[in-house]
Simulated scan of single mutants.
Amino acid sequence: MGNGRKPTVKICGIRDEETLRGLLTLPVDQIGFVFAKSRRQVTPEEAGSLIRIAREERGDALHRTVGVFVEPSREELTAVLAKAPVDIVQLHSEESPDDCRWIREQFGVQVYRVISLASQAKRSGKMDLRRPIQPLRAAKELLLPYQGSVDAVLLDTYDPVTIGGSGRTFPWESIPPYREAAHRLGMSLIAAGGLTIDNVRSLLDLYHPDGVDISGGVETDGVKDIQKIRTFVERVKGHEQADRIAANRKPDELS
């Protein structure tokens, strides 16, 4: 978090064991399961089974699991997390600081709070979650109430239908004030929305988020593509250490 560490990678929208096992061979930091209504939605039982596989294969210290929710009630969260004990709860709705604090304390998880920004193509008109570019002071005022109750802020592209996963980018020049405000308040800043293997290096070079979150950008015909995931991860992790993955594949390193 602003200390020179390599950015984290979250691959979201995982639904099947084959893809999961492919991720477990890569330096992916977070694996996301969508519980909100979406074409990538999984049931708590499906996610629970995949979480057990991940923990059996790699242990709790690697590949943190994330549950994505939109306007969940406390009862829904309790029921879902009883079957799918994720490490992180990601909220795409308007939860209050008290709600976020309750989730952290009740379930012993981290909480990511999503802020939705207008896409490059939609920058005018009245905005609800579609916040305009924020200067540092405004960003800090927005985030300050969540200090101590939220671990990371995730900037995503606003879409009234898909909520997240729109496949469109927001104006990346919005990132610096949010990143600075988040760091001052002890939070990380994660960027999502329209990322691909072709544009992620530009994002990292120009705006230096603490992490990146991708789903549709590593799919082919709506299905997770392990080769695209591998390329994406290599480009992110190679941003500061280009030879790391190749070195890890050397026979003398695998013995």
Rank of each mutant, 00 (worst) to 15 (best):
T65G: 02
S116M: 06
T196P: 00
P132I: 14
N3I: 12
E180Y: 04
V153K: 03
A182T: 11
R123L: 12
E71L: 06
R21Q: 12
F170R: 08
S73T: 12
V212L: 06
V80W: 00
L23V: 04
Q110E: 13
P72A: 11
R137Q: 13
I53W: 05
F69V: 05
Q241F: 06
A118Q: 04
G32I: 03
L195C: 06
L189I: 12
Y112F: 10
Y146W: 09
P135V: 07
V109F: 02
D221E: 15
Q30K: 11
P135A: 05
V111T: 05
V153Q: 01
R230P: 03
V111R: 01
S215E: 09
E219F: 14
H63G: 01
V68W: 00
D221A: 15
V66W: 01
A181H: 05
R168H: 06
K122Y: 11
E46R: 12
I214K: 02
Y158Q: 04
D156F: 04
E56Q: 15
E75L: 09
I88N: 04
H183N: 12
A84D: 02
R123E: 08
V114Y: 00
A79W: 01
V86K: 00
Y112S: 00
L204Y: 07
A181G: 10
E71D: 14
K83R: 13
L254Y: 10
V70K: 00
L91S: 04
D87M: 05
I14T: 06
S96C: 07
L185W: 08
L136M: 11
R40L: 05
P209H: 09
G4P: 06
Q227Y: 09
P160L: 12
L154K: 00
L50F: 10
G222P: 00
L203G: 01
T19Y: 04
L136T: 14
R58C: 14
R55E: 13
D151I: 08
S149N: 06
A121S: 15
I31H: 00
T78Q: 09
P132E: 15
A54T: 08
V28P: 02
L77C: 02
R137A: 09
A79G: 09
R244V: 14
E71G: 06
A82Q: 14
G148S: 12
E17W: 08
A192C: 07
A118E: 03
D210Y: 09
D213S: 07
R249V: 07
N248G: 15
D128M: 14
T43H: 08
I226S: 03
P72Y: 05
G193R: 02
S124H: 12
T169G: 10
G148R: 04
T65A: 00
T25E: 13
G164F: 02
A121C: 11
R168D: 08
V200I: 13
T65Y: 01
G48Q: 10
L195G: 02
Q90G: 05
D243N: 13
Q120L: 15
R168N: 10
Q106Y: 06
V70I: 08
R40V: 04
Q227C: 07
D210L: 03
K37A: 15
T157L: 07
D98C: 07
F33K: 04
I31T: 03
L23G: 01
S119A: 15
D128V: 15
E17S: 14
A181P: 01
K6D: 13
M187E: 03
R244I: 13
I163A: 07
I31V: 14
P7F: 11
E56S: 15
P85F: 05
P160E: 11
